[in-house]
């Protein structure tokens, strides 16, 4: 049974695209068939983060408008054959995304894939609402920082009111993914702690991704951090998040890049 997962946040620059690529690659690494869709029409970047920017032929808008078949627009990852990318258009604007068109594309993708990951644009406009519209599961990416938490709260409200599931009175599964977390600063009282953010947003935590230079290194070379360096702190944190997403119980820790201190520095359970 295919699952549509939206990666969203409201605020820009918190790590939606990084997380979409990393989660998609980690799920595909485990053998699932995964497609990652870029909904940021006009400002696409998922292709660049996944290293496929030179191979984009057709895009989501071409498929929505019937100018190209889905198979022509899907770009298969060169490292993982069960990972595909559906890029956004760089030249069109978000109004080209029609609700029926998006629904049709997602229905077709449901036949072919186990996971359909929708990388939402920032904001709460059409691109973002279209990305979340048909989702079964939402991953809300949040930084431990006031404006990000506030925007996440707003997005959680939209997930509970504007999605298809919400309108049908069904539950949409929501998870918090805390990114760019620095346990040392949180401990010193310079950064919101995990439990602060959890208390405010009160949705279950799916993972804590530590601030790490590995994330920039991976995007520099166009490879999801879970493929570029799976043993790195963010790599392990994303793999743990994927295990939780699939229903496993995994102890919540913040992995660290420091040698010899395998992520046990800050082990704690969360809601």
């Amino acid at each position: 049974m295919a699952k549509v997962l939206v990666v969203t946040s409201g605020k820009g620059g918190v790590g939606k695209t990084t997380s979409s690529a990393a989660l998609g690659a980690a799920l595909a690494h485990g053998g699932d068939k995964v497609v990652v869709i870029d909904f940021d029409v006009g400002l696409r970047n998922l292709d660049l983060v996944m290293g496929a920017e030179r191979r984009v032929v057709f895009d989501l808008i071409n498929v929505v408008q019937g100018d190209a078949k889905l198979n022509q627009a899907l770009i298969r990852d060169k490292r993982l054959e069960n990972l595909s990318l559906l890029p956004a258009s760089q030249t069109r604007d978000k109004d080209a995304l029609t609700e029926e068109g998006v629904a049709r594309v997602l229905d077709e993708l449901r036949q072919k894939f186990d996971w359909i990951i929708c990388d939402s644009p920032a904001g709460i406009e059409r691109g973002a609402t279209m990305a979340m519209r048909h989702a079964d599961v939402a991953v809300v990416v949040t930084n431990p920082e006031v404006s990000s938490v506030r925007d996440s709260d707003r997005i959680i409200g939209l997930l509970d009111s504007k999605t298809e599931r919400a309108e049908k009175g069904e539950r949409i599964e929501k998870h918090l993914l805390l990114t760019r977390y620095d346990p040392a600063r949180a401990e010193r009282g310079e950064m919101l702690k995990v439990e602060d953010v959890l208390e405010i947003l009160s949705i279950p935590l799916i993972g804590i991704i530590p601030e790490s230079e590995e994330v920039l290194r991976a995007s520099n070379v166009g490879s999801p951090v879970t493929l570029n360096n799976p043993a790195s702190a963010p790599g392990r944190a994303y793999f743990d998040a994927v295990r939780r997403l699939k229903g496993e119980t995994v102890e919540l820790t913040v992995p660290t890049d420091k040698k010899g201190l395998f992520g046990k520095l800050f082990g704690r359970r969360a809601a």
Binding site: E53, R54, R55, V56, V57, A68, K69, N71, Q72
Partner: peptide, 30 residues
């Protein structure tokens, strides 16, 4: 490259009925 793709496909369609499924396009920008 994208523009060439569109125009070449238009020329082909002018002469031959081509099902969209039977067209495979690959690009590599280097």
């Amino acid at each position: 490259v994208a523009q060439l793709r569109e125009e070449i496909l238009a020329v082909v369609r002018r002469h031959v009925m081509v099902e969209q499924d039977n067209v495979q396009v690959k690009m590599n920008r280097d």
